[in-house]
Design a protein around this nucleic acid. Sequence first.
DNA 1: TCGGATGAAATTGCATTCATTTTTTTGGCG
DNA 2: CGCCAAAAAAATGAATGCAATTTCATCCGA
Lengths: 243, 243
Amino acid sequence: MQSDSGDLRLSAQVTSLVRSLHGEVLERLRDFIVEGNILPGARIPERLLCDRFGISRTPLREALKVLASEGLVELLPNRGARVRLIDGQELVELFDVMGCLEALAGRLACEKITPGEFDAIERLHHEMYGHYLQRNLHGYFACNQAIHDRIVLAADNATLRATYTNFAGRLRRVRYAANLDADRDRWGEAMREHEEILDALRRRAGDALSDILFRHLRNKRRAAVHRETETLLCNATLTATKR
Amino acid sequence: MQSDSGDLRLSAQVTSLVRSLHGEVLERLRDFIVEGNILPGARIPERLLCDRFGISRTPLREALKVLASEGLVELLPNRGARVRLIDGQELVELFDVMGCLEALAGRLACEKITPGEFDAIERLHHEMYGHYLQRNLHGYFACNQAIHDRIVLAADNATLRATYTNFAGRLRRVRYAANLDADRDRWGEAMREHEEILDALRRRAGDALSDILFRHLRNKRRAAVHRETETLLCNATLTATKR
DNA sequence: TCGGATGAAATTGCATTCATTTTTTTGGCG
DNA sequence: CGCCAAAAAAATGAATGCAATTTCATCCGA
């Protein structure tokens, strides 16, 4: 009655969250939130979501509990769930953790990457460079993310992959893409960093790649936090509800 | 009727998992598992746990879903939850992720640690050294863990702290403490590494501390995996139930 | 008109119930 | 005696029900 489903993507966290209403709802709700369909801080009545997904409250509540443990939503006792709003402080924290995960991924990737995987990344890099030259922000970001994802994949560490996916989801809720639009310098800098990344990966220089990736994320953060603090302040006053 | 409670420890993951039957059960069950009270791979009948905690299945099942997302238990569709058994491969993965988290903690700690915090760690270090000289394994490990925890605390990054706590819990289920007992060389090596750690922290040398901590964990891993693969193989045949 | 109290409606937390699937037991047969 | 099929028992997944809490609307007095 409610939905088709057939989406075979695995749960971000653990493969054991199997096909079931609960697992189904978990993914759909996570995507729904990550894609920014609910305003941070806004109350989410269970009933509404139940209707939306065509299920009863039990599996929905289970999903909410999991999303809370993932840090995407916030559970207030007797007052329901709301999308956690990420302030500047937390954004900084997230970027640092993300940076260390990427740094590890880079290091491991240098140990384990196959020539085929490297070639794929190299192609993505050149494609990304094309987008950069054409000032195609959307294409640029798609390639960018694909590259980082593939480095994580090449690291061949399922635990790292799951953790990375989790944090990527949290960060994705915060749109920092637009920054490059206004900040051409940062865009150029990012592109140069990616040249370094590719070079270190080619040389299988784990230490160097690890360093570059961590710096890369810190620079990303610097660019992101600027703009984000403003919009967050705005959001906070607009959507944060009374306690 | 069922339990007192009054344990004020916060949830490992997010502070929003508040006082409620669900939150209560979540923590108790997590501790119960982390402390190794359930054999990995053994089936855990819901009813049994419900009786044990004196609650109905609803909050228990919510807790199980969360623990599954944390990677502590495994949910098989229609076949209940069981404690995930961590094989050698995953152990390696966990140590690497743990190493990168500790490395980040060390780097951040160098930026933020207060003299008071450093002094406390230094005292712990000397206490640990005393235990080492006396071959007091238990005391040694308590100090060791306290030091690592305090470095993470000093890093002043709640997101990192939560993630670290999660992984520490997963690893804690795997007893690798006994290794040092048989492997005196490793014990000495670990002690020397800790000297380096303290030294780098004193100098607030973030890069160096980060490196040392990562290496430290890799060495820990090397020592752990040896022994663990054997016991795991044993466990697997003993407790892994038929599918 | 504003602020606060009061009661109704809605929402949440948890227990219980029901349908489905799995596991165990039982019985038949080789 | 062992092996497979079928029925009974148990366990799980999800929906519903109910008590407790919160939220919202209304009313009263200043």
